[in-house]
Amino acid sequence: MATLSYDDSPVAVRQDLIESHRRTWRRLAEPGTWLDGATRVAIAAESRRAFDCDLCRQRKQALSPNAVQGRHDTQGGLPDALIDTIHRVMTDPSRLSHGWFKGVIDAGMPETDYVEAIGVACTTLAVDGFARAMGLPLRDLPEPLPGEPTRRRPVGAKQGPAWVPWVLPEDVTEDETGLYDHGATNVCKALSLVPQAAIGFFDVVTAQYLPGMTAIRDFGGRYRAINRAQIELLSARVSAINQCAY
């Protein structure tokens, strides 16, 4: 497997960030918990494709995303329901609703597949977004590796206030070691039904945002080349434009 690099960047990229992205690409190619490597890489490719999808563009402009029907511009190779899920999450996330989610699950997508797929898509988006923000081409996706998913559901997973079941810190077992190494806020719990999805996603987030809860709580500390106020200004601006109320 080719190793991800930023050797083409005119600006030096932090080594810890490069290492995080390399781990991410390695995980992406491997069989996951519920999805095999080929499906995971196909989801990553579809997450990229969504931004050039004409149906998604029309839905984004419509008063209601459900008012526009049609077919997505797609890479193919994934079930239609999964393609639609990925495209909606990528291109119009603020208008996702509990009713829409229930429809996806009621139509047959297991909650575990949903969580893992979104973990893959959002982790890929964070890596891709870095390249795009730096003016670099998107990194080549890895070749999928053979093997079977582990299909291990956390025994402590239970329904909470989120749409999907999650694992509370007190219900973590040895099988989920490392799940809350970077904190246990609700956004950390969001992917916990598939612990490896959460661990992988927050590997990238801690490399790109702040290195863990100690740093997050240390408002006066300096962990990056921009200060904390500048970091929070950037993150708040992105979330505001994305209309993310969380």
Binding site: L17, V89, M90, P93, I118, G119, A121, C122, T123, L125, A126, V127, D128, G129, F130, R132, A133, V187, A190, L191, F201, V204, V205, A207, Q208, Y209, I226, I231, L234, S235, V238, S239, N242, C244, Y246
Partner: peptide, 12 residues
């Protein structure tokens, strides 16, 4: 790195 991380965080 920050703006890209929040693209993912918001969607999760």
């Amino acid at each position: 790195a920050v703006v890209a991380a929040y693209e993912g965080l918001d969607r999760v």
